[in-house]
Nucleic acid binder design. Structure first.
Lengths: 351, 351
DNA sequence: TTGTAGGCGTTATCAT
DNA sequence: ATGATAACGCCTACAA
């Protein structure tokens, strides 16, 4: 097939009897060009079907108008909403979004990192893989003055922009809520402890128990690898078979919390009467399952938007100093049926 | 801050006493370069921290190693899995993925289309917005020999690659299943009829009724704009208040089906005994809610992988001919509790 | 306000 | 097997 020749600023220049530089300036709204000329040139450009070549502009500027995103998996409600927030904000500012998923594997994270770097992205937004410990693969961005925003799963040994929620308080409040409901043997589904968000949630859990004078029982703290449905199922089965089973579970994510409820049901354990459950994230499923799942809100889309804005605002600032700008968002406990031991008002309300 | 000078093939050339061309060829595994030299050069490149510049290579080749994705919304289970499938396949082949969401608005689709074009993507994967009717914005890709793969929500007045499921058969089978369960007044939640996937599902529904000798009642066919939870809720309420309410609903997506079940519960209508429901997509929620939702499988990730492969395999072939290569995937009815009127085996099985 | 010219990093062509 | 050179499209000092 014949491929149509693309229109360049040279073609426009010839057509309109201007120099290419004037065309270029006009298209970029350069102040030295009169409104009239700009309008004329832009209309001609549109008429001739001109489309800018980001590759050429990017090469010239050594930077593409692109934000890179590096996450574990796209098809998780939290991540999908995070990306959605990033995309929306970036798009409005005329930026594109390049995505990549590590599937929670360090090796993938490194190679995706390189792939994004090779595309000369304007900035990088990262939620670390479960495995990642070493952070060397991010250094080259810093060396080039390319801003990195870590979001949700952030490192604590690397200075950069960070966007997180207050995981400690969230963990504390979630646990406190269960205690308020009368739970005394509260289990915790903990995430990988080298990811500080999970460490913080657990700390909040521990402190809530301590403050209430409840004993900390190691056998009720289950350390998960990925907080998957399967892991949750297995853990719950084991817990409920204990001589003194827990009467409450605080899970570090909704997926595992849901599996706990389903497992309990199957084993004939009533939720919330015999076992109260609270999750984390407020996935869509939380409000729909029955009993509906109490959980902690996690403003995914907003975190994405903030992360993108960080990149957009960065432009040329230097942030390699030992300066770490952290944005901490609040969360709230969303009380639904799965943790309401005492009163049962709102029973059928979807929330 | 000081920005480190980036290493280019010229630096490598100087360092190794080769010409830039040789370096370039070696890095691209050109056959005229000996294995030994390639190894030498690649090792030096890695040692010196060389990273290729996709922008420059892309400009030179007038094509970036990037696949563009244009969808309605990322944070929908089907879409997230679709993207995930695309990303995984693209990544393995060394391609990047640029995403954009239209939020189901025509105007956004057009401008995103342009933004992706400006980045000189290798190929475009599209699931049309609900609004889109005119297809002119895609023409420029065809003119440049850039392949387009339409997936799921595809046009029927535009020749290109397409990846779809057999919506007619799916709609037929879903409806037939309800009939087999003894339903005689089956309602249908239909999507926007100018999107052929919804038209096909409806056709299947109608034919299933006809073949079974059941009357087609217009008042039981509800046309939705977006098949949202709210729309589903409203429609269900109206249906159940009819003098002769339906005893079955075939919804063109799971979201609306879930809302139907929840609405029915609230109104004291038993599912499936009084009202059987079957959805479409097999969203994660379908197997977890109670009663679990019968639905039609929709191989999102696989469709994404196939779409990406289409682009990767295209390389230079001409497909502007009046040739439309369509890949049709099969689906299957997933029977769960929400439609099992008669027998109740497997009651507590999650599916 | 507009034009000229050089270069961003890479690769393909042509030559050796 | 390797090298020299031009070109991809755009932007921006510098000049006018």
């Amino acid at each position: 097939m014949k491929i149509k020749k693309e229109v360049t600023i040279y073609d426009l220049a010839k057509e309109l009897n201007y120099s290419p530089s004037t065309i270029s300036r006009a298209l970029n709204n350069h102040k030295s060009i009169s409104k009239k000329t700009i309008k004329l040139i832009k209309e001609a450009a549109a008429g001739m079907g001109y489309r800018p070549n980001n590759l050429a502009a990017g090469l010239r500027n050594n930077k593409s108008n692109t934000i890179g995103v590096l996450i574990s998996r796209i098809n998780r409600p939290f991540m999908a909403s995070l990306i959605s927030g990033i995309e929306e904000t970036a798009r409005k500012a005329g930026y594109n979004v390049l995505i990549s998923q590590s599937n929670d594997m360090y090796e993938n994270e490194v190679s995706n990192c390189n792939a994004l770097y090779d595309s000369r992205i304007t900035g990088l937004i990262v939620s670390l893989s479960m495995e990642t410990v070493d952070m060397a693969h991010f250094q080259k961005f810093i060396d080039q003055g390319i801003p990195i925003v870590f979001v949700d799963r952030v490192p604590d040994n690397f200075n950069s922009y960070k966007v997180v929620i207050d995981n400690y308080t969230a963990g504390y409040s979630a646990t406190k809520h269960l205690i308020d409901q009368g739970c005394t043997r509260i289990a915790h589904f903990a995430g990988a402890q080298h990811r500080n968000i999970y460490e913080e949630r657990k700390k909040g859990y521990l402190d809530a128990l301590r403050e209430s004078g409840l004993p900390i029982r190691d056998e009720l703290i289950i350390h998960f690898k990925t907080l998957s449905f399967e892991e949750g199922n297995k853990a719950t089965k084991k817990l409920l078979k204990m001589p003194e089973p827990p009467d409450g579970i605080f899970s570090a994510n909704d997926t595992a919390a849901v599996s706990a409820i389903m497992c309990a049901k199957k084993m004939g354990v009533e939720v919330p009467q015999e076992l109260a459950v609270i999750g984390f994230n407020d996935d869509p499923i939380a409000s729909i399952m029955q009993p509906s799942l109490s959980t902690v809100s996690h403003p995914a889309s907003k975190m994405g938007a903030i992360s993108a804005k960080r990149i957009l605002n960065h432009s040329g600032q230097n942030y390699d100093a030992d300066l770490t700008e952290i944005t901490v968002l609040g969360t709230e406990i969303i009380v639904r049926d799965s943790s309401l031991k005492r009163t049962r008002m709102l029973r059928s309300k979807t929330s």
